[in-house]
Amino acid sequence: MSDFNHTLAFSVPFETARQAQIAQRALDPDPILKPSELSVEYSTEDTFLKIDFKGRSDRVIRVAANNVLENLKTVVECMDEFEGQKDVCI
């Protein structure tokens, strides 16, 4: 939208392109609470995850970016803990 004149673009490198794609697919389904005030787009470029926020104000971008980063940290932690491990039935 044209009045979304505040933007914040994150560039987050991963070890592999696959990790960046997993992060994108994990974050993308989260619905945007105020689509009339904000848009969020996820994409990948090689090993980089790109997150683009466009919004009407600093306030809506701050709330959304903080939430997405909180989720992203959980995604990274899960990869760090579990990637490369075989499933174990207990």
Partner: peptide, 24 residues
């Protein structure tokens, strides 16, 4: 490497929050 990334994302999150709060 991912552990270090998580720490740096936390710092970036703090910086973004403080920057945008000041802007507001």
């Amino acid at each position: 490497r991912l552990g270090a990334l998580r720490g740096m994302l936390t710092t970036l999150q703090d910086d973004v929050n403080e920057f945008l709060t000041q802007r507001m």
